[in-house]
Amino acid sequence: MSPFGPGAITQIRHGAYRIESAMACDQCKRLSIAGLISSERPTGTEPVYMIPFWSSNDPSAWAPLHVEGQEFVDVPAHVANAASEAYKSHSIENYMSAILMARTVVEAAAKETGVISGSLFNKIDELEKKSLIRPDTKEAAHAIRQFGNDMAHGDIAIAVDAEDSTEVLTFMSEILYELFQGPARISGLKARAAARKQAP
């Protein structure tokens, strides 16, 4: 990213400045805004001054934020979309939203497999009873449920962080693999094996 046009310098308190610059990607040429709070004030706002400033300082914030989801092949579209939304929330550091959406995904996935009665606690246990998930996957699903319940019921005094969100999303993805993606891959493998037997 290289400075593109004049930057903006705002003194926010004594000895502290908000530095912002339009930045162009060296590859795709699209623009973003880089910013940080610094005790160093560039001599001017023109690129000739901003280039050395950004060469020695890393932006602490970018706008617009880069939002990144995930693709979930062989997962029902509405469940896959919610799971991708969980990852998008995580990518912009909205960890509570990511965890709450992961809980939603677990419940939606259970309903999609025909487990529709009772609380999420009961749905998760029923998935394991039906051998749709392994016992350790059941425990992972309950962990997601517990984290998500905190968000849903306003128990947010203790903050969640990137590690919490990453673990929750990792387990969510494993649950989706076990319920949908793994069986789809096995079916595909069986179909290819059967086709080989029928080949001349």
Results as ranks from 00 to 15, higher is better:
residue 179 L to D: 00
residue 191 A to F: 10
residue 69 G to T: 05
residue 86 A to S: 12
residue 36 L to R: 08
residue 152 A to T: 08
residue 176 L to I: 02
residue 25 C to I: 13
residue 127 L to T: 00
residue 174 E to Q: 13
residue 3 P to Q: 05
residue 164 D to V: 07
residue 24 A to H: 09
residue 167 E to Q: 15
residue 11 Q to P: 06
residue 81 N to G: 05
residue 88 K to Q: 03
residue 64 P to Q: 15
residue 99 I to D: 00
residue 83 A to W: 01
residue 121 F to D: 09
residue 84 S to P: 04
residue 137 T to C: 09
residue 136 D to G: 11
residue 163 E to D: 14
residue 47 P to I: 05
residue 129 K to I: 06
residue 145 R to S: 07
residue 109 A to K: 03
residue 23 M to Y: 02
residue 111 K to Q: 14
residue 93 E to S: 10
residue 33 I to E: 07
residue 168 V to D: 00
residue 8 A to V: 12
residue 136 D to C: 09
residue 181 Q to A: 10
residue 197 K to W: 05
residue 146 Q to S: 10
residue 21 S to V: 06
residue 151 M to L: 07
residue 133 I to D: 00
residue 100 L to M: 10
residue 153 H to N: 10
residue 122 N to L: 08
residue 12 I to T: 12
residue 111 K to H: 14
residue 104 T to A: 12
residue 7 G to M: 05
residue 146 Q to H: 13
residue 132 L to S: 04
residue 42 P to W: 08
residue 145 R to L: 08
residue 179 L to A: 03
residue 132 L to C: 09
residue 66 H to C: 10
residue 184 A to P: 09
residue 87 Y to I: 00
residue 9 I to L: 15
residue 168 V to A: 04
residue 60 S to L: 13
residue 62 W to A: 11
residue 137 T to N: 03
residue 68 E to T: 12
residue 184 A to K: 12
residue 145 R to V: 06
residue 77 A to R: 11
residue 67 V to D: 09
residue 64 P to M: 15
residue 78 H to C: 07
residue 32 S to Q: 15
residue 5 G to L: 09
residue 50 M to C: 10
residue 108 A to N: 03
residue 98 A to I: 01
residue 42 P to G: 05
residue 174 E to T: 07
residue 54 W to S: 10
residue 34 A to G: 06
residue 95 Y to M: 06
residue 160 V to S: 07
residue 127 L to R: 00
residue 114 G to L: 05
residue 8 A to S: 12
residue 88 K to W: 01
residue 41 R to W: 08
residue 46 E to T: 13
residue 35 G to T: 02
residue 30 R to P: 01
residue 172 M to K: 00
residue 195 A to C: 10
residue 197 K to I: 11
residue 38 S to V: 01
residue 112 E to A: 05
residue 189 L to S: 14
residue 117 S to D: 13
residue 198 Q to K: 12
residue 94 N to P: 06
residue 109 A to W: 02
residue 113 T to D: 02
residue 138 K to G: 03
residue 91 S to N: 06
residue 7 G to P: 06
residue 91 S to C: 06
residue 188 G to S: 15
residue 34 A to I: 02
residue 183 P to L: 09
residue 165 S to M: 07
residue 82 A to C: 07
residue 190 K to E: 09
residue 51 I to R: 14
residue 94 N to H: 13
residue 147 F to S: 04
residue 71 E to C: 11
residue 42 P to K: 10
residue 124 I to A: 03
residue 197 K to V: 10
residue 47 P to R: 08
residue 66 H to G: 10
residue 117 S to Y: 07
residue 138 K to D: 00
residue 61 A to M: 14
residue 46 E to H: 10
residue 109 A to Y: 02
residue 85 E to P: 01
residue 95 Y to G: 01
residue 195 A to K: 14
residue 43 T to L: 15
residue 156 I to E: 10
residue 15 G to K: 08
residue 97 S to W: 03
residue 106 V to G: 01
residue 7 G to I: 06
residue 195 A to E: 15
residue 104 T to Y: 02
residue 111 K to F: 14
residue 131 S to D: 15
residue 178 E to A: 04
residue 50 M to N: 04
residue 14 H to W: 06
residue 110 A to Y: 01
residue 189 L to N: 13
residue 8 A to I: 11
residue 199 A to S: 15
residue 77 A to Y: 04
residue 194 A to T: 03
residue 149 N to E: 11
residue 31 L to G: 07
